[in-house]
């Protein structure tokens, strides 16, 4: 056990050192995810226009049907931005996010394996495009599992909120925080379980099924590292998730436009988290693979 801890600790330290060195010295690595961030910001701006005249007339029937008249007026109409942005962000994350992850993984791999430590994003894009279907299937599996967790959380929270008395003597507001944290950590753990699958698809040129098998095997031997590399950065997002959980209350207590700050913070944090996780996971996998090769030799 001490040797396991030592080996995991050492891997973690090397991975983080290399990750932050790489992100400091090769800023182009951020570009793929920065493009997504740019698109997300444009989406927020576009949604802001959409909820106002003259464009609002096109979405008014849908808004009236699903949310009611008050959502056509300030400040409830701002909440629509949050709701619509959630779906837009999901679409971007699944399609473009998968592709950009592939590009970044390929770039990190090129950097690590080439003698003069260089990478070409174009070559990364080509490789990501070739393996896109396998990458996408893995993303969809993770997204589905995370969605199941969040819908379960919503159902449980709904039941707790519907009770006349506080469940287990804990205030309802506190249950929202507990629910958000629990769902956040659980979905983080799900992402930990699939952390290396896309790296394997790109790096080892495997199909999604073989990649998943190899991923689980790798996780079994490096669970601590995986937790630290994936769950820890994801926890940074928790404050934003908590603010989003009761956004309307926050809007009432401050000013409704605080929504843009929360969404913006989410977008920027999302960029940082995605970059750090993707780069560090790839480096950790390549480090372990190199060690394994050295041991065999």
């Amino acid at each position: 056990m001490p040797s396991y801890a030592r080996s995991q600790g050492s891997l973690l330290q090397r991975t983080w050192e290399k990750t932050f060195f790489l992100l400091r010295t090769r800023r182009m690595l951020i570009l793929p995810f920065a493009i997504i961030t740019g698109l997300e910001i444009i989406t927020i701006a576009a949604l802001f226009f959409l909820i106002q005249p003259p464009l609002v007339k096109y979405i008014a029937p849908v808004v009236l049907r699903f949310w009611g008249e008050q959502f056509l007026h300030y400040p409830f109409n701002l909440l629509l931005i949050s709701k619509f942005f959630y779906y837009a962000q999901m679409g971007l994350a699944v399609i473009l996010g998968t592709f950009m992850s592939g590009v970044t993984i390929s770039a990190v791999r090129q950097y690590t394996l080439t003698r003069n430590n260089t990478f070409l994003l174009g070559q990364g894009a080509k490789q990501a495009l070739l393996r896109f279907v396998h990458l996408l299937i893995i993303t969809l599996i993770v997204v589905c599992l995370v969605q199941i967790i969040y819908s379960l959380e919503q159902k449980v929270l709904f039941k707790i909120m519907a009770r006349e008395r506080n469940f287990l003597g804990i205030a309802k507001d506190l249950w929202v925080i507990i629910g958000t944290c629990a769902a956040g950590v659980t979905s983080g753990l799900v992402q930990v379980l699939f952390a290396f699958a896309q790296t394997i698809v790109i790096g080892d040129n495997k199909n999604f099924l073989s990649a998943l098998m190899r991923n689980f095997k790798f996780i079994a031997g490096n669970f601590f590292t995986a937790i630290m590399l994936v769950l820890l950065p994801l926890l940074v997002y928790l404050p934003v998730a908590l603010l989003k959980a009761d956004l309307f209350k926050l809007m009432n207590q401050t000013i409704p436009e605080v929504l843009f700050v929360v969404l913006g913070a989410g977008v920027v944090l999302g960029l940082l988290i995605n970059v750090v996780i993707t780069v560090s996971v790839t480096i950790a996998y390549l480090e372990r693979s190199r060690e394994a090769e050295e041991e065999q030799e």
Binding site: A45, F48, F49, Q52, P53, H73, Y74, P75, P256
Partner: peptide, 13 residues
């Protein structure tokens, strides 16, 4: 992008 409707509703709110 802030329409007059947005500005007035905001002021009123």
């Amino acid at each position: 992008g802030c329409s007059s409707q947005y500005t007035m509703e905001r002021k009123l709110w």
